[in-house]
Write a protein that binds this DNA or RNA. Structure first.
Length: 423
RNA sequence: GUGGCUUUAGCUCAGCUGGUUAGAGCAUCAGAUUGUGGAUCUGAGGGUCGAGGGUUCAAAUCCCUCAAGCCACCCCA
């Protein structure tokens, strides 16, 4: 009979061999975030659909074709979260965090859901490490976010990462720029791809996202938004750039970087990896979203954050270096069934000292058990046979040196500890 | 969502133009005179050949449908 189910499309199992990479990412995230004063928050895996429609933007690809939406029993429309920022802004106000000292700095690690066609490094359920600083519009917070993400890649020892930076203005200067862009493109509408013609009306900035050959030439000569920023936006952008330079964070300006979500204002940034394929080369990105809280019906409130993709980062990490799963310190073996309880007891004593101890449960021969001890990478084997049991002793074997000593029960812990700390 | 390629043991793959009980390496388990190891040797288990339907005396091998994966596009993490 065929199994009743298989892993759903676009999902994956994170198996024990994957965990060292995930541990490294989570630990680095936590250490860095706390170091910058960001505290952890986790919001629900699903929210009211309206939160994303209003927060992310009803014309975005996420909302129009990528959400996992379902109805609860009362007929309310719910959606598995496709991104983290709108829920966190919602939580910020729900919890009254606007009354705390501003800005409120938050970080999160969790899974997100988008129903795109799966591909390498792109899943229906994926994980992000992200931060949000809400309640203050200072460009120093933009710099803080950019640096924190940069340091994360650095802490993981991941090379080949590049930082791309742009400013897309705000509600003061962007409308004028949008008109300018339309004016530029209008005479060439016939030459554009169908997708781009649709963007011309809905969101001309996204004309820059196109990879269609016929759109490329036009893109090159299009007016750049950084040349049309209003005074406050330009000033903020200068602060961001100059501070990054002073901190020696390498970045490149990319006037075509617009990002897909409606709520971004001013600073936007993205991290790319050289060996991720052209289309999925983004490891993560972020930006300022001063318009989001207002769009969600809250008091207008500034915010800045990023989200970094953990699947893609794990992929690059695996290519860069090999991390082995945690091996046990001690592999405990009973020579005969009668010795098992004594071995079980000794293992417990060793665990109380914080050691990782595996008890062999099999009825196999001693050489087979030792073979397993070796394959598991145990540093020490603890052996008990009838002789040892009768004398109240145990054999402590150093698996690497292939030497062993028989010691009294009370000497087991110090002997094992010493063997583990040697070389 | 659109187009293309792929899908044989846990993993990596072989299987020529359709023909008897589908193979290899690695991995797993077990033995190699009985309380000692990752090597070597020997052996074993493990696949309804992605799923379903069709053509045929006969299909892993041809046709159709579906599913999953990969690549490009769309877009994003």
């Amino acid at each position: 009979m065929a199994p009743v189910a298989q892993r759903p499309r676009g999902t994956q199992d994170l198996l024990p061999p994957d965990q060292p990479y995930w541990d490294a990412m989570e630990q680095a995230a936590q250490a860095l975030a706390l170091g910058f004063g960001y505290l952890r928050i986790e919001t629900p895996s699903f929210e009211s659909t309206e939160l994303f429609v209003r927060g992310v933007g009803d014309a975005t690809d996420i909302v129009t074709k990528e959400m996992f939406t379902f109805a609860d029993r009362g007929g309310r429309s719910l959606t598995l979260r496709p991104e983290g920022t709108a829920p966190i802004v919602r939580a910020y106000f729900d919890a009254g965090m606007q009354l705390e000292p501003q800005p409120v700095r938050l970080y999160y690690l969790g899974s997100y859901f988008r129903s795109e066609r799966p591909q390498r490094g792109r899943f229906h359920e994926f994980h992000q490490f992200g931060i949000e600083a809400i309640g203050d519009g200072s460009p120093l917070l933009d710099v803080e976010a950019v640096i924190l993400a940069w340091k994360w890649f650095g802490a993981l020892g991941l090379g080949g990462v590049s930082l791309h930076l742009n400013s897309i203005g705000d509600e003061v200067c962007r409308p004028a720029y949008r008109d300018l862009l339309r004016e530029y493109y209008r005479p060439h509408l016939g030459e554009l791809s169908a997708d781009s013609r649709a963007r011309f009306e809905k969101n001309p900035l996204r004309l820059f996202d196109s990879k269609e050959p016929q759109d490329q030439a036009l893109k090159r000569d299009a007016p750049r938004i950084v040349d049309h920023l209003c005074e406050p936006c330009a000033e903020a952008f200068t602060t961001v750039k100059e501070t990054l330079e002073a901190e020696e964070i390498p970045f490149s300006l990319n006037s075509e970087l617009v990002r897909g979500l409606d709520y971004y204002t001013r600073t936007v940034f993205e991290y790319q990896h050289v060996s991720l394929g052209g289309a999925q080369n983004a490891l993560g990105g972020g930006g300022r979203y001063d318009g989001l809280a207002g769009a969600l019906g809250y008091k207008p409130t500034a915010g800045i954050g990023f989200a970094l993709g953990m699947e893609r980062t794990a992929m690059m990490l695996k290519e860069a270096k090999e991390l082995a799963p945690l091996a046990p310190d001690v592999y405990a073996v009973a020579v005969e069934p009668k010795d098992e309880r004594y071995v079980f007891h000794l293992a417990g004593t060793l665990r109380e000292r914080g050691l990782r101890v595996i008890v062999d449960p099999s009825a196999a021969r001693l050489d087979a058990k030792l073979r397993k001890a070796a394959k598991r990478g145990a540093r020490v084997a603890l052996l008990v046979g009838p002789e040892e049991r009768q004398k109240g002793e145990a054999v402590v074997r150093d698996m690497r040196l292939k030497t062993q000593v028989s010691v009294a029960e009370r000497e087991v812990v110090p002997t094992v500890t010493q063997a583990l700390s040697a070389g």
